[in-house]
Design a protein around this nucleic acid. Structure first.
Length: 502
RNA sequence: CGCGGGGUGGAGCAGCCUGGUAGCUCGCAAGGCUCAUAACCUUGAGGUCCUGAGUUCAAAUCUCAGCCCCGCAACCA
């Protein structure tokens, strides 16, 4: 692990409002960023997100909304930014592909590749599906219909510009093989490898004539054409954190990225197009690319006809922000697909947050009020003699090896968020058991103050450590817990997660 | 021969790569306890690990064949 951490989400396409999927990727990136800031220091972490705003779909959507393309994009960007604020996303930078810094870098990149001969002009003859913005060759088209959307395709013949993917296919294949951590998880890496082994890449058409698409970045060497969306969008990862100097050398404090995070549907672009673009530009590869799974909406069939789609804002309003963040990262191992349902959210909320965590904090606070008059016993006051079980727990959290901290951190660094949370819950459960085994109410009756003091100290330490480790996942909850335990006089107040009736 | 994911106690999953007493969470049942949010703790019931064949001393785990389910849509993470 390097001493700095640059992480990105994909640029979200602004042809509509953000949904659960966007929030998933971004929350995961946020958790990693927060964790890394704690580990490496604030100044050594850079978290980038943003929006992809060019292309035909945007142009069309804007038209439908009776706005200019830029005006339309501006509106949707606001929605994204609002959502990120609502989800407590701690991004350092938000880049839009319509910003000058980005446009400039894209143009530079295009120019460099053109001069180098990696972009060339050619006549394209074939079929084009306007709604899909996709080119098809004869064999793919079925009765002059788009194989994807089944609508009529147009026969077109036009001059376009192509990027020489073919030239670098072998290089990419061996790069991926030589760098086993480049594409994660492994199953995805295998997918890409197999794809590269079994197929011959086609050169990528990276332009659209202006007559057909005006909403894009013009090619510097062919002003009658604009760039294709993916060529535009991927470049953001470098345009946001650096620039090309006069010699065409890219310079940046943050590059290369430690991690590009995305969902599995855009792995191809990130694992094939992007590395080749970088390589052709003479730029270092990102350290790794991670493709996570999808959330399947359980009520999908219903929601399609009824039109009520799961909206992150609604879930947060109903169950709270941290419950949402917790659910997404806990319920399904990162990388696999999951099923989203409110029922599942409620289950997690009640059993994990209310019964386990919330209740542990609450019962502990109550005991501090009851047995110690609201003052947390000072652990410095004399040596504390823990009982055997208490000592075991203390060893886990503050023994030489800091086992607890280590296993939680290790899982996060492996991008295994659910595992990390499971480890945290293991110690929460251990603490709940410890209460049962120690029976503090008996100690109180027998006025065993010393024992009681040691007992409470164990619980307080567990809770503090849990809050500490939970910070990247549930920042608000962690702060609330630490604040409560930081007061001179405990006032337990309301439970953190009141049970929900389902 | 389209692509991809998957079939493990009532539900949701882990285990499979690197074969060797089948594990977790929820639910259910009984009991315990009272500091606590009808919470917490203990114990228990419940499984042909899709089918068949093969490899092996040994297969949920490896090989082959077959069956079945899901997505391939949108706001596409």
């Amino acid at each position: 692990m390097k001493s700095k951490f640059y992480i990105t989400t994909p640029l979200y396409y602004v042809n509509a409002s953000p949904h659960i999927g966007h929030s998933y990727t971004t929350i995961a990136a946020d958790v990693l960023s927060r964790y890394m800031r704690k580990k490496l220091g604030e100044e050594n972490v850079w978290f980038l997100t943003g929006t992809d705003e060019h292309g035909q779909k945007i142009e069309k959507a804007a038209e439908a909304a009776k706005l200019t393309a830029q005006g339309f994009a501006d509106c949707v960007v606001l929605k994204f930014k609002e959502l990120w604020k609502g989800l407590n996303i701690s991004y350092n930078d938000f880049i839009r592909t319509t910003e000058e810094r980005h446009v400039k870098t894209v143009k530079n990149a295009l120019e460099i590749l053109y001069k180098k001969g990696d972009i060339y002009e050619d006549k394209y003859v074939g079929w084009y599906c306007t709604p899909c913005e996709t080119f098809w060759i004869d064999s793919q088209v079925i009765d002059e219909n788009c194989p994807d959307c089944k609508r009529k395709v147009e026969r077109i013949s036009e001059t376009n510009y192509f990027f020489k993917l073919t030239k670098y296919q072998d290089w990419l294949l061996s790069y991926i093989k030589d760098n086993p951590d480049f594409i994660k998880p492994d199953s995805r890496k295998e997918e890409v490898l197999r794809f590269l082994e079994l197929n011959k890449l086609n050169d990528l058409c990276i332009s659209r004539p202006k007559e057909r698409l005006s909403w894009g970045i013009p090619l510097p060497f062919a002003p009658g054409h604009v760039t294709y969306v993916w060529f535009d969008a991927l470049v953001n990862y470098i345009s946001a954190v650096g620039e090309f100097n006069a010699d065409g050398k890219y310079q940046s404090r943050w590059w290369p990225a430690q991690l590009h995070l995305m969902a599995k549907d855009i792995l191809r672009q990130h694992a094939v197009y992007w590395p080749i673009m970088l390589h052709a530009l003479g730029i270092e590869m990102p350290e790794s690319i991670f493709a996570h799974g999808w959330w399947m909406l359980e009520e999908e069939k219903i929601s399609k006809s009824r039109g009520n789609v799961v909206n992150p804002v609604d879930i947060v309003r109903r169950y709270g922000l941290d419950a949402y963040r917790y659910f997404l990262l806990r319920d399904v191992p990162f990388g696999l697909d999951g099923n989203f349902s409110e029922e599942a959210v409620i289950k997690r909320y009640n059993s994990d947050l209310a019964n386990d965590l919330g209740n542990l904090v609450y019962r502990t606070l109550t005991m501090i009020e009851k047995y110690f008059d609201g003052n947390i016993p000072d652990s410095k006051e004399g040596r504390i003699k823990y009982d055997l079980k208490g000592q075991k727990i203390i060893n886990l959290i503050e023994g030489e090896d800091f086992v607890f901290k280590k296993v939680v951190g290790k899982a996060i660094e492996d991008y295994n968020f659910s595992q990390s949370l499971t480890e945290i819950w293991n110690i929460i459960n251990l603490a709940n058991k410890y209460v049962e085994e120690t029976k503090p109410w008996n100690l109180a009756k027998e006025s065993k103050q010393k024992e009681l003091r040691a007992f409470i100290t164990v619980l307080v330490k567990v809770i503090r450590n849990v809050a500490e480790e939970l910070m990247p996942f549930m920042p608000d909850t962690s702060s609330a817990i630490l604040e409560q335990l930081g007061k001179d006089k405990i006032n337990k107040g309301d439970p953190l997660f009141p049970r929900l009736l389902s």
